[in-house]
Each structure stands twice: as C-alpha cells, then as structure tokens.
C-alpha cells in the first residue's frame, strides 16, 4: 500500500529526518507519520515547513512516497531509499550502519 511521508534535513547537522505528527522530527523512517491521502499530506507538509522554519529544525522539506509491504516501509524511489539508509557503496555509514 502506498503512503506519503515528510522528510527534510536537520538544520544543525544536515542529517536526514522524517516528520512525526506527535514527536516532531525523527531520525528513522519507521518513526515517520504516513498519510494516505494527498490533501492531508499537503496540509501536514505546509505546517511542518512553517514549524521547521520557525523553530529552525529542518530545511529542504518535501513529501515522498512510501510503500508498506509486509509491515515494512520502503521508499518508492531509489533516491529516498538511499537517503533513508545511507550510501550503497559505504554500508558502514549512514543510518544503515546503526541499524
């Protein structure tokens, strides 16, 4: 099943972060809020952007698509898969290293 999630980079260190409606910006895709319909996602994106700029938390914020297969979240594009894990050529680095 396909969902939308919000991502960005943390202002202070550039780390990839995901938006959670309750917890705010989290480091793992597993903690991101998922939105089924486009309108809700767009509304959440606008508020996340405004909040992030005001609180100086994250930059370069946008929506991306996520598939949930057997309970596992997988970004649709290669780009977002790499962002959520780390470089494929250095699996000792990025989020995948601590997984």
């Amino acid at each position: 099943m396909s969902f939308r999630a919000i991502t960005g980079n943390r202002l202070r260190d550039g780390a990839v972060v995901f938006y959670n409606d309750e917890a705010g910006w989290v480091e793992r895709l597993t903690g991101a809020s998922l939105y089924e319909d486009k309108a809700t996602a767009e509304t959440k994106l606008a508020s996340a952007k405004a909040e992030a700029e005001k609180e100086r938390l994250a930059v370069d914020i946008y929506l991306f698509e996520v598939l949930v297969e057997d309970g596992k979240r997988v970004p649709v594009t290669i780009r977002e898969r790499i962002r959520s894990l780390g470089p494929t050529v250095r699996t000792d680095l990025g989020k995948q290293a601590a997984a």
């Binding site: 202002l11 930059v59 680095l93």
Partner: peptide, 25 residues
Amino acid sequence: LAGELTEDEFKPLRLMNGLYLQLHA
C-alpha cells in the same frame, strides 16, 4: 541557527563558502 536569517537568505551565503546540502548531510 538563532533564526535571524531564513534558509532562503542563508543558502547563498553558505554556498559562497563551499557548503552544500546533499543527500545525507
């Protein structure tokens, strides 16, 4: 970091100092 500059204002300044935002950092 103190919020006195927006990202739009800051981005050209960081780029002039060789600092880009890429996928992971």
